[in-house]
Amino acid sequence: MSLRSVLGSAAGAALLLLAAAPGATASAAPYETVTVDPAGSIAPDGTVTLSGTYRCLGNSGAAFVSSSVSQGDPSVRHGIGGTRAVCDGMEHAWQNSGKPSSDPVAPGAARVEATVMELSSGGGLPLPRFHAVRDQDVTLTES
């Protein structure tokens, strides 16, 4: 698999770079935020929908809100979509939907991580710049 095909999707790129950049949350400015709504939903086909708000400033590259969910084993996280972010200093709503590829998610308690991340190219290879990260307990309900 080529690097180009791995980075082909915005959500995939965000999750790949998030996993590859431990400790990157330290660079987020205090006025840049992301929230996660306390409840998410699961459709009959297993699609999970998560939402919240974000605020970020000054992106020079493509910016995204990515999200993941885990239940039970915290080391197993399922990527749940990605949304294009506008970093203009204003608060915006985000909503991501996705179907876990393995081990379906069930109604009940879950842990969600949401990240506002920008891919900025400062000399070739796009590098991640993390604007905000939030890790929060939520309740998933059937929709």
Score class of each variant (00 low, 15 high):
E32M: 09
L125K: 07
L119Y: 06
S27L: 07
H131Q: 04
V76C: 02
A85K: 10
L18K: 05
V48R: 02
L119R: 13
M117F: 09
A21H: 14
T47N: 02
L7Y: 10
V112R: 10
L15S: 09
R129S: 07
V65I: 14
G108L: 10
A24E: 11
L17F: 14
A39Q: 15
S75A: 14
A20R: 11
H78N: 13
A114C: 09
R84S: 15
P30S: 14
D45I: 04
P22Y: 05
V34E: 11
T47M: 05
L16N: 03
N59F: 00
L15E: 13
H92I: 06
R134I: 00
D88C: 11
S5I: 12
G72R: 07
V65Q: 04
P30K: 08
S41F: 05
A63L: 11
G72Q: 09
G108C: 12
P128H: 03
G79H: 04
L3V: 12
P44T: 08
V36R: 10
V48E: 01
L57K: 02
G124V: 10
G98M: 05
S75Q: 12
G81F: 05
A14W: 01
V86M: 12
A39F: 08
L15W: 11
L7W: 03
G46Y: 03
A62V: 14
D73P: 05
A29Y: 03
G72M: 09
G108W: 12
L7A: 10
A11D: 14
P126T: 10
Q71M: 12
P104Q: 04
T47S: 06
P107R: 02
I42D: 05
I42R: 08
C87D: 08
F130N: 01
N59T: 12
Y31R: 15
A132D: 03
G40P: 10
S120G: 07
S60M: 07
F130T: 09
D45A: 04
N59H: 11
N96C: 05
V65F: 07
G122W: 09
V86A: 13
A43M: 04
M90T: 14
G46D: 07
D37T: 13
H78E: 09
V86P: 00
S5K: 13
S41W: 03
L7E: 03
K99A: 10
S2D: 14
V105Q: 05
G61P: 11
G124L: 12
E32N: 14
A39T: 15
L57C: 00
E32Y: 08
G72W: 07
N96G: 05
L18A: 15
A24H: 05
D45T: 02
G58I: 04
P30H: 02
G89F: 08
V48P: 04
N59L: 01
G123T: 09
P126V: 11
G123D: 10
D73F: 02
P38E: 08
P100S: 06
V69L: 11
V133D: 02
L50R: 06
T25P: 00
D73V: 06
P74S: 13
S67Q: 07
E91R: 12
R134S: 13
C87Y: 07
G123M: 06
P38K: 04
A132I: 08
S121F: 00
F64D: 01
M90P: 00
A114S: 15
V105M: 08
V48H: 02
A43W: 01
Y31P: 01
H131T: 02
Y54E: 04
S121I: 09
P44H: 03
G98H: 02
